[in-house]
């Protein structure tokens, strides 16, 4: 095996993203296999219509067997009940429900659908305390999982 698995997988994902990026998703910076920045646009007809967000993916050497670290960065963090103002995202597939069948593209789609289904732009109720105490890496938070069908 010439390249380590994460590099092989990421080069394939990059090519795929370059050719068939999901609507509203664009690559801002993917010059190495460690950190990628992607743009995510709020879908038309939703509360986030016209807004532009930035996502940062950090890949470890065990990707895709282990999940990447994913967070919103930049000056515009979506105001959403499952997104903290430090960019941390409550989405189970990013943590203990991760499976290597997920890809960067599928995560972007999940996030977009999480935004699109939102009916009220509000921060998580415990935003202030969480943001004060959380670590930089959201994977170091112990997440409890809620139903989002509310």
């Amino acid at each position: 095996m010439a390249k380590p698995m994460f590099a092989r997988r990421l080069s394939k994902e990059l090519k795929d993203l370059a050719m068939n990026a999901p609507a509203g998703v664009n690559i801002i910076d993917a010059n190495d296999f460690k950190v990628w920045k992607l743009g995510l646009a709020g879908a038309p007809g939703t509360l986030y219509d016209g807004e532009k967000f930035q996502l940062e993916f950090n890949f470890g050497p065990n990707y895709p067997l282990e999940s990447p670290q994913v967070l919103f960065v930049g000056d515009n963090i979506p105001v959403h009940p499952h997104i903290y103002s430090n960019g941390h995202i409550c989405l189970d597939v990013l943590y203990n429900h991760w499976s290597p069948v997920q890809t960067v593209a599928s995560i972007c789609l999940s996030l977009q659908s999480m935004l699109s289904s939102c009916t009220s732009k509000e921060p998580p109720p415990d935003n202030a305390t969480y943001v004060k105490t959380a670590r930089a890496n959201p994977k170091h938070t112990a997440w409890a999982f809620h139903d989002d069908t509310v």
């Binding site: 009940p81 499952h82 903290y84 941390h88 409550c90 989405l91 189970d92 597939v93 943590y95 999940s110 999480m114 289904s117 939102c118 009916t119 009220s120 509000e122 998580p124 109720p125 415990d126 305390t129 969480y130 105490t133 959380a134 670590r135 959201p138 170091h140 938070t141 112990a142 997440w143 409890a144 999982f145 809620h146 139903d147 989002d148 069908t149 509310v150």
Partner: peptide, 25 residues
């Protein structure tokens, strides 16, 4: 969608769906 009610009832089974709330450290 309304805001997720954060404190879980003590005996609630954790639902299996997609969104999460941190129990930060």
């Amino acid at each position: 969608m309304t805001v997720t009610p954060v404190p879980l009832p003590t005996n609630a089974p954790i639902p299996t769906a997609a969104a999460t709330t941190p129990v930060g450290a």
